[in-house]
Structures are given as structure tokens and as C-alpha cells.
Amino acid sequence: MTNVRNLLPYWLTAPGILVMLAFVALPLVLTLSLSMYPFLPGGGVGDGLTLANYADIARDDYFHAIFARTFGMAFLVTAICIAIGVPEAYVLSRLSSRWRAVSMVIVLGPLLISVVVRTLGWAVLLGNEGVINKILLSIGVVSEPIKMMYTFTGVVVALVHVLVPFMVLAVWTSLQKLDRATEQAAASLGASLPTVLRRIVFPQVIPGVLSGGLIVFALAASAFATPAIIGGRRLKVVPTTIYDEFLGNLNWPLGAALAVVLVIIVLAVSLGMNRLIERQYKQVFS
């Protein structure tokens, strides 16, 4: 009888575990195993296990450049999201409740629009014949259009736009736990507003910055639609490369290997940052 009761929680979680196994774990395992098959030129998957696909990735400068670009972009997007999202969340938390509600809708706006529509919107803005360039040309700031479509900058701008809300929400949650009196206390001890924000507020919202940063980083590194539309086929990042390997070159094993490497790097960076920051700011996490 006691045995049955002890096992009950496991039985109750079984449906959830099954769904996870079927839809998350299994595809990952299949991808991993696919990445270890040899590729037969012409579009087939051969027999036997090999690490040749990984060796290709490790050896080829072409892939190095793509990985460097992807993670450089992810770090930059994360940094900009922190720089924009933290002050934004702080300002939001200081608004009266009515303005806060309005502002929240504006902040979350990008998430309410389909990724394709939103990205095409950016294309309309950023193109050589786009709104921004037309305005700049007409007021004479520039003599010829600035190239923004199909550039690294363009992708970063579009990604920041959609990922900032995640940062704002995460930091906002941390800010709500902040005792406002600590800011007043710091002021009474002679700290100016910038000092209060830097020395008192920011360290206390580090947990929010961290969780927001992890979300933004993982989403930026694995973003597909935005780099595909704004970056185009020539400014490749890992997700668009995987897509091309699968559907363009029909090299499924190499695509799978790229996917596995991407997952591992994202996980490693996320866990590493987590450990580092939690150790650094041990007290605010308790």
C-alpha cells in the first residue's frame, strides 16, 4: 500500500514526461544520431557511424565565420537589450498605474505581431528605397542611401526590437521585489541619482538581468526568420545555414551536426554565465 502511494507522484507526472520525451527528447536524440551518419553526395544518408560531419565543422573556416557571426550577434543583441531594457523597466516601474498599463502594451507590442510581418516591416523601413533612407536623403543628412538591409546592423536592430520585451519583463519582475527605501537610503547617504542606479538598483535586479539575458541570448542565437529576411542568403547565421544544408544541399547529417553544435554552445554559454553571475552576486539571489 505504501509502495503504491510513494509511486503515485511519478504516475501523475507520467503524461507530462511522455509528452516531453516524444516531442523534445526524441527529436534531439534523432538529430544527434542523424548527425553521426555519413553523407552520400547526391543527397543520401549512408550507413555506419562517423564523426566526419563534426570534423568538417571544426576544420572549415566557412563554418567558423558563421558561428562567430551568430554568437557575436547574439552577444551584441543581448548587450543592447540590457542597455535598453533595464532603464525601460525602471522607468516603467516608476510610472503611475494607468500610464504603466499603456506603456506595457507598447512594450509588449512587438510580441503580438507575427514574426514574418514584423520583419517585413523592418525591411520596408531599412531598405535602400525604405522609409529611413528616404527621410535621411530628403533632409540631406546623407547623399546616398545607407545600406541597412542585408547587413549585420540591420539584423541586430530587428532582433533587438523583438527581444527587448523579454528583458523588460524579466527585469520588471526583479524591480517589484526592490525596496524603494534602499534608494532613498542611498540618497540620504549622499549618492546622486546615477550612483543610486548603478550601485544600488542595478545590483539588486541582477537576477532579472540574468534570466532576461539568457532568454534573449538563446532566442537571438537560434533566430531564423529575422536573419533570413533581413540578413538574406549571404549574411548567414547558424540557423539559416542549417536550413540551407537540409533543404538546399540536402546534406541532412551536416545540418544535424550544425544543430547539435548550436545547442551545445548555447547551453554551455547560458550555464556558464549563470554560474559566474550567481557566484558574483550570491547575496541578491538568496
Binding site: D179, A181, T182, Q184, A185, S188, Q204, Q283
Partner: peptide, 12 residues
């Protein structure tokens, strides 16, 4: 010098 009801110590 101010002492607050919540003490407002800097937790970090």
C-alpha cells in the same frame, strides 16, 4: 542620517 522602517539595508 535616516533609519527607515524597513531598515533599507543594501542586500548586496
Amino acid at each position: 542620517g535616516i533609519v527607515f522602517q524597513s531598515y533599507a539595508l543594501f542586500p548586496h
